[in-house]
Simulated assay, not measured.
Amino acid sequence: MSTVKLELTDKKYDIIIEPGILKQVGTAVQKIWSPRQVLLVSDTNVAKLYLTQVQEALMASGYVVTTSVVPAGEASKSLNVAQDLYRVMLDQAFTRSDGVIALGGGVVGDLAGFVASTFMRGISFIQLPTSLLAQVDSSVGGKTAVDFGTGKNLVGTFYQPDLVLIDPDTLKTLTPRYVAEGYAEVIKMAATAADPAFWPLIESIQKPADILHQATALITHSVQFKAMVVMNDEKETGMRQILNFGHTLGHAIELLAQGKLAHGEAVAIGMVQICRIFEAKGLTPAGITAKIQKQVAAVGLPVDSPLLFTPKFYDQLRLDKKNRGDHLNFVYLKALGQPAIYPVAKGEIKDFIASEVSST
């Protein structure tokens, strides 16, 4: 078992990584929560695998459990679905002393966390992430959100959970595509982390099956790095922006793909392309792009997209929620493990990118 402690000024909690821990969820929750009502939120894919098991374990430990299963997919991250969950809690007479548990991937975690953070101005919350993407990234750090209009995560909060339980065994039920998708975030962490053991671990991954064999180590390194970043910058005003490596370009094409690209696939493309642009400018050392691309391609992740560098692509960049005033911060690599931020004025984004695209 690995335990990563995330300690903030007004919140401390454990992130426990252990194969099989989902079978011990009742005992683990008992250590931090008194008996109470619990809303257990899952989706239609995860519920059929783990919902009954988790519900029974919680009930055996003294919790009154109400389950709510939302449709799988990004469409459930909406204010309408959040309102449905509020109604369930009101119907069951939930109070501020009760809690919400998210059982699923990033969509469920974001949605349930948002509901927990806003119901009665905030009630207790626990994350049980079941996808690699959620285990290494979205379940750690306290970001919650729903989508609004055409934008991802436009309505949300920073709201830390009381506990995160990560069971690498749940990855065995994912398709190879979604194991690889989550692994894109692991590559992002390794490329930006000043951890001498992390990138060599990435280079040992030569095929998708290797991700499962090394899952506990990959998750642990990722969570340790993300926890360190969050402890230094909880609200993403400075250092935490480095976690957007690959995301600025990736979010734009993810939205334009309209569901045909998974989040991690878009991030993989974004990492390769931002390295290519900054390498062409002489700001990223020669050879870094090739290293990133090799590890991305090794597990079948995409490295390019026809959606890149189109008029709609540039329009989407200018609307990115990470825009700071009149500029957009691009995260690039001075070297592996040395991320940096390069601000570009909104009106100059296309010229900044296009000058290198046209010359390569």
Rank of each mutant, 00 (worst) to 15 (best):
T52N: 15
A209F: 10
Y159G: 10
L308I: 06
K172L: 11
Q160N: 03
L212Y: 07
E74A: 15
I353V: 13
L249C: 02
V164D: 12
K12F: 01
Y13D: 02
L261C: 00
V25W: 08
F313I: 06
T220C: 09
P208T: 09
R177N: 12
G259K: 15
V230E: 08
P339H: 00
A57N: 12
Y86G: 02
G142H: 06
A47G: 12
R324H: 09
V136F: 02
K77V: 01
D110W: 01
R177S: 10
L261P: 11
H327Q: 14
A134Y: 01
G149R: 13
R240L: 10
L174Q: 15
C275M: 13
A217N: 14
A286N: 11
A102G: 07
D315G: 08
A257C: 13
P339A: 05
Q295N: 15
A184Q: 05
Q316T: 04
D84S: 15
V267E: 02
V100Q: 14
Y63R: 15
L249A: 06
T284M: 10
T360H: 07
L328A: 02
G106A: 07
S124I: 04
F114C: 00
K312V: 07
A60D: 14
G113I: 07
S61Q: 01
D84E: 05
H327F: 03
A191P: 12
K48S: 08
I202S: 07
A191R: 07
V107Q: 11
I123D: 04
K322S: 04
I126G: 12
E348D: 11
F94K: 10
E185S: 09
Q206F: 00
A134H: 03
G73S: 11
V81S: 09
G106D: 12
R240W: 09
S2Y: 10
D162H: 09
H213S: 11
G104R: 04
L128P: 10
M231P: 04
G264H: 02
L255I: 03
D315T: 07
Q206E: 11
Q273S: 05
P35E: 09
Y86W: 15
L243G: 12
R177I: 03
M89H: 01
S97Q: 14
A102Q: 01
V41A: 13
Y183E: 10
G151S: 09
N323G: 02
D169C: 07
N45W: 00
I15W: 05
G99D: 14
V229T: 13
V70I: 00
I101Q: 08
V29D: 09
L165R: 07
L58H: 05
V70L: 08
